[in-house]
């Protein structure tokens, strides 16, 4: 008789003990944080990416005109870019998937942060590409051009995040759009009212710092709130 068969018959394989417990204890997240950010980027709506690229194209066209107003017109467009970002970040709330996402293994805070990083980094990239071109055709240096583009973006994003936490659905969308329009109009009005005087002062880094602080506060508040399902 075959020795292998004989041994098999003599010593039957015992039934697995604690197999499921062992497998559970060794279930690791298969997705790294970097992969999560890339995955989130992959699920951002195509129209958001296309519109963002469209904004870059428009800014470049405006810059190529060589008009001194180009930077002000371009910076008045960035609130619309920020509005798209806020809409993407609030997508789960809008479509009622918060409950599902909260029950997933990846903490919702991490998932939302990944989404913010994916969209925010892309938008920063767009502004970073536009700034040197606008600077080259205009009268301001790159840092100042960057600040002019970034400040209204951050201001709209932070106010939009705040509003979207307080107001839901259509009301929230309308208010966020109103904020974007207000910031856009404010930029143009400041230019018309105090344009020359403002450019001679050192107020622009102060405005950027204020917008940055507001953004950090709002991002932290938004991430904090994701931990709990707010329920009526």
């Amino acid at each position: 008789m075959n020795i292998k068969k004989e041994l098999k018959n003599a010593f039957p394989v015992p039934a697995p003990v604690g197999r499921r417990e062992f497998l559970r204890a060794h279930r690791r997240r298969e997705l790294s944080t970097m992969m999560l950010v890339l995955t989130e980027a992959g699920y951002v709506r195509l129209r958001t990416w296309l519109s963002s690229l469209g904004f870059l194209a428009v800014m470049l066209v405006i810059a190529s005109g060589g008009e001194p107003e180009a930077i002000w017109v371009s910076s008045s467009l960035t609130p619309a870019l920020a509005l798209m970002a806020v809409a993407e970040w609030g997508r789960s709330r809008r479509y009622g998937t918060v409950e599902l996402e909260l029950a997933c293994r990846t903490p919702r805070r991490t998932a939302l942060l990944a989404r913010m990083v994916a969209v925010g980094a892309a938008h920063l990239g767009i502004l970073a590409l536009a700034a040197p071109v606008l600077s080259a055709w205009g009268e301001m240096n790159v840092a100042r051009t960057g600040a002019h583009l970034l400040t209204p973006y951050l201001l709209t994003a932070s106010l939009g995040l705040d509003l979207s936490r307080r107001c839901r659905g259509r009301e929230g969308a309308i208010l966020c759009s109103a904020v974007a329009i207000t910031v856009c109009a404010l930029g143009l009005w400041i230019r018309r009212a105090w344009g020359g005087a403002l450019e001679r002062t050192k107020l622009w880094p102060v405005a950027l710092i204020v917008a940055l602080i507001l953004s950090v506060i709002e991002v932290v508040s938004t991430l904090r709130e994701t931990e709990v399902l707010t329920w009526s």
């Binding site: 559970r24 279930r27 997508r91 479509y95 009622g96 998937t97 599902l100 029950a103 997933c104």
Partner: peptide, 15 residues
């Protein structure tokens, strides 16, 4: 949550 499967009463989805 790693071993949890959950189907809520109202399923939210991205249309």
């Amino acid at each position: 949550r790693a071993v949890l499967g959950y189907l809520p009463q109202e399923l939210g989805y991205y249309p």
